[in-house]
Simulated assay, not measured.
Amino acid sequence: MRATLRAIEGDGHRRRPVLPFGAEAIDSRLADGGLRLDALHEVAAATPGMGDDASATLFLAGIAARAWGPVLWVVRRRDLFAPGLYQSGLSPERVLYAEAADDAEVLALMEEGLRHRALGAVIGETRRAAMASTRRLQLAAEGGRTIALLMKRHAREDADPFAVPSAAVTRWRIASAPSAPLPVAGIGRARWDVALARQRGGEPFHLIVEACDETGRIALPARLVDRPAAAGGAVARAAA
C-alpha cells in the first residue's frame, strides 16, 4: 500500500475545511456547517440487518464521493458492491481497496492513509475500536484535508457499536426507511433514517432523507421540503 500511496501526488490546491451535505436541514444543524475534513467521523447501521448495513455503507460512499480525490477503503471482507457505490456517486476508479486481517490492521492502515495527505477520504470498517485508537485517527487527520470515516459494525446482535467512547467529531446511525411511493407499481427512490447520535459542539438530531443520487448527494423528501415552517414545525420533529 505504501508504494500505491507514494504514486499519488497532491495538486497543491488548498482544500475547504468542511464538506457540506448540500441539504440545509442537515448542514444548518451541524456545528461546523458540514463534516470537518480534518476529523474522524463514525457511522453505524441502526441494526445488524442487511438493509441497514447497506444503507450505512452507501451513506459513507456518498460522503466519499463528494470528497476531493482518491479514496482508500480498508475492509475486513470482500463484500463491497462496486455498482452500488457507483450509484451513490463513488466511481470505482477513485477507490483504492486494502484488505486487513483484523481490526487492529484496519486502524493501522487508516492511520497510514491519513498521514499521507494525498487522499480525499479514508474509510475503514471495524467491529471494535478503543478510545485510544480513535484518538490516533483523529490526530492523524488533524491539519489535513483527508476526511476519516470509520464504519462501526455490530459485534453481536444486541451490541451497540457506539457503546465505547470515541474521539470522533460526529457519530451517525443509519437505517433503511420505506421508499417514496409511486403513482404506479414499482419502487421509488430509497430513503434512509439518519440520526446524528453525537456531535462535538452541537446537538443530536434525526431526519428521514432520500438516499444518495449519482453525485453523492442526499435530499429531503419533497413533502418535507414543501411544508411551510409554521405548519410543519422543525424538520427534525416532522421527520422523526
Results as ranks from 00 to 15, higher is better:
22 G>V: 00
151 M>Q: 09
44 A>R: 09
132 A>N: 11
29 R>C: 08
166 S>N: 10
75 V>N: 09
207 L>Q: 06
31 A>L: 10
208 I>A: 05
86 Y>C: 00
212 C>I: 07
120 G>M: 01
116 H>K: 11
96 L>T: 12
39 A>S: 15
116 H>G: 06
76 R>H: 14
198 R>T: 09
63 I>D: 03
231 A>Y: 12
33 G>V: 09
100 A>P: 03
20 P>T: 05
92 P>A: 04
127 R>W: 13
208 I>D: 02
62 G>P: 01
168 A>P: 01
56 A>C: 13
168 A>N: 01
239 A>L: 03
65 A>V: 07
76 R>F: 15
43 V>T: 04
209 V>G: 02
121 A>L: 02
133 S>A: 08
7 A>I: 11
51 G>Q: 13
169 V>P: 10
23 A>E: 15
21 F>G: 02
101 A>L: 12
61 A>C: 10
26 I>R: 01
221 P>N: 10
42 E>W: 09
236 A>I: 03
204 P>A: 07
186 G>W: 05
24 E>N: 11
226 D>P: 00
57 T>D: 06
83 P>V: 04
39 A>W: 06
192 W>N: 05
160 D>Q: 02
47 T>G: 12
228 P>Y: 02
61 A>Q: 00
21 F>K: 04
212 C>N: 10
34 G>Q: 08
105 E>V: 13
60 L>Q: 07
96 L>D: 07
37 L>Q: 08
120 G>W: 03
40 L>Y: 06
221 P>S: 13
22 G>E: 04
5 L>K: 01
62 G>A: 11
34 G>R: 15
143 G>A: 12
22 G>A: 08
143 G>F: 08
127 R>E: 09
51 G>K: 12
154 H>P: 01
61 A>R: 00
87 Q>W: 01
146 T>N: 00
238 A>T: 02
131 M>Y: 14
229 A>Y: 09
80 L>N: 12
217 R>E: 09
205 F>C: 05
228 P>A: 05
56 A>V: 08
223 R>F: 14
166 S>H: 09
43 V>I: 08
74 V>K: 03
130 A>N: 07
168 A>S: 03
226 D>L: 11
39 A>C: 11
74 V>A: 00
137 L>K: 00
178 P>I: 12
195 A>F: 13
18 V>T: 14
12 G>M: 11
178 P>D: 10
17 P>D: 06
70 P>F: 07
82 A>V: 02
200 R>V: 11
112 E>A: 13
174 I>D: 01
199 Q>S: 06
211 A>H: 00
95 V>D: 07
224 L>I: 10
184 V>Y: 14
170 T>L: 04
130 A>K: 00
95 V>F: 05
221 P>C: 12
183 P>L: 09
92 P>T: 02
